[in-house]
Design a protein around this nucleic acid. Sequence first.
DNA 1: CGGTCAGGTTGACATTGTCAAGTTAACGGT
DNA 2: ACCGTTAACTTGACAATGTCAACCTGACCG
Lengths: 200, 200
Amino acid sequence: MREELLDAAERLLVEGGSDDALTLRAVAAAAGVSTPSVYLHFADREALLEAVCIRVWGELESLFHEARGDDPFQSIGRFARAYARFGIDHPVQYRVLLMRPAIHENKAAASCFRLMTEAISASVHTGLLHGDPRTLALQLWSAVHGAVSLIIAQPHLPWPADLDQFVDGVVRMAGLGAAVQTRVPQLSSSAELKAVFDAL
Amino acid sequence: MREELLDAAERLLVEGGSDDALTLRAVAAAAGVSTPSVYLHFADREALLEAVCIRVWGELESLFHEARGDDPFQSIGRFARAYARFGIDHPVQYRVLLMRPAIHENKAAASCFRLMTEAISASVHTGLLHGDPRTLALQLWSAVHGAVSLIIAQPHLPWPADLDQFVDGVVRMAGLGAAVQTRVPQLSSSAELKAVFDAL
DNA sequence: CGGTCAGGTTGACATTGTCAAGTTAACGGT
DNA sequence: ACCGTTAACTTGACAATGTCAACCTGACCG
């Protein structure tokens, strides 16, 4: 029964495209049960919503394990792309768990974050990146999350036709930026910076 | 009266910390008026919410004009920092206008986006950046927005104590990454990349 | 065979956005 | 000076929704 409720809730959520399409009455009706029965399986509406979304976030965790490769720096890129694809493919679940004030943490996301941090840490050891791995992970994650959440929430912006390519650009920008970050003088003038980069 | 409603609504919103602290009854009561009177000044709850948030977004537009300097590449950084500061200082209004499915565009944000695009375009002309200014602007904006929205929505993450410094890191990462992006071979191995960067 | 209990139902309540109908006060033209 | 129009506001109500208390029911176990 719990599963049927989750299925019904997920259908409503995805078809409605927004979390306020998820009403307890609609879920209960779709599962062929009376409204307050939902409370036998979930503490409240919020818990049901969370459960539905966490279920699909579990898939991302698997994707992350698949994406892990030998080269840690390339793994970072693969993680980021898998993450972005996931968010764009599951906009509602992404929004519910990551774009609203979160009471307690998203376990699946935390797990993915750990994998990402490990890859970054490894890249620090090879000397490609410098600095605190956790902070670097937050910076990279910020970049990718920013692209995903803007794409989801602001579709009217002048997005390029090929979103995957755009995300690629963001990942590339973030990765290269993280790598260069600590190797360039802190406050150069534009002219100096240009000279440095033109030498590449 | 319209102004008093806006003031009351803003108070509720900021003190409540969430947009569902904004109930028409509470707003009307705080403004000393009956509930349906709100409809004489705003089409519906959503319109009131939007009006409150847009009012403070107008301030950001002014900040952007102040932040504009002579060096376009440095202006980009100043814009980004002003933007992040604004978002962190006005979390509710930021969330309402940028982290929910937006029906029609945010005029103030669009205006800031234009200023940002202009600075980027100028940096392309000086040769510091390469590529489509609009796409570059979206990428940079994604990075900053990502940091802001994660900080707002996921406070339990292991954020460094100094948020301004963190934002600085993101801005730096994004800016440098954007500059390097097109000057580095498309798909280098980690070893090659390391060699290139170590030469910096 | 009787008690316990998980799973389910009915009926109700408070809160909320929203609307229709009525009221009041100001204001302008004849 | 009077009357009609209009804008601002109120009262009273409605429907939708989350949530809870009380009741029911069938299965399982000593």
